[in-house]
């Protein structure tokens, strides 16, 4: 179960220059809010994804700071403008310091 928290991302393979395209992404994460107790009554420490950074060819294009109100297995969709072919990197960081990354490629035509 090594890919426990592997984010799933959907980016169109190709886009026309200047086109606005949608990126959909979802990551499997329990988003422990710190108020739940385990079977023995011990508090389960808070561990939520608190940061997402999206880079398009190394340039910051989207991001967010998450709080406890975000559900488990968060899903996000956002729009980007196709400027040039290249890589879209998504980096999620949780409070335990774990980092989940994915890289998608997009080809911009015309």
């Amino acid at each position: 179960m090594a890919d426990e928290n592997k984010p799933r991302v959907r980016v169109p393979k190709t886009a026309k220059k200047g086109e606005i395209f949608e990126v959909k992404t979802s990551v499997t994460h329990p988003m422990e809010n710190g108020s739940r107790k385990d079977k023995d009554g011990n508090v389960v420490p808070r561990n939520i994804i608190n940061k997402l950074v999206v880079k398009y060819n190394g340039k910051d294009v989207f991001g967010g700071d998450f709080g406890t109100a975000v559900s488990a297995n968060p899903f996000l969709s956002f729009h980007l403008k196709a400027e040039e072919s290249g890589k879209i990197d998504l980096t999620w960081t949780d409070e335990s310091g774990a980092v989940f990354t994915t890289t998608e490629t997009i080809t911009v035509e015309g």
Partner: peptide
């Protein structure tokens, strides 16, 4: 209906690993 929005597909992918 959407494979990315459907969190159940995370389990499908884990299953693929297993």
């Amino acid at each position: 209906d959407d494979e990315i929005m459907n969190p159940g597909f995370a389990w499908v992918e884990r299953g693929r690993g297993l």
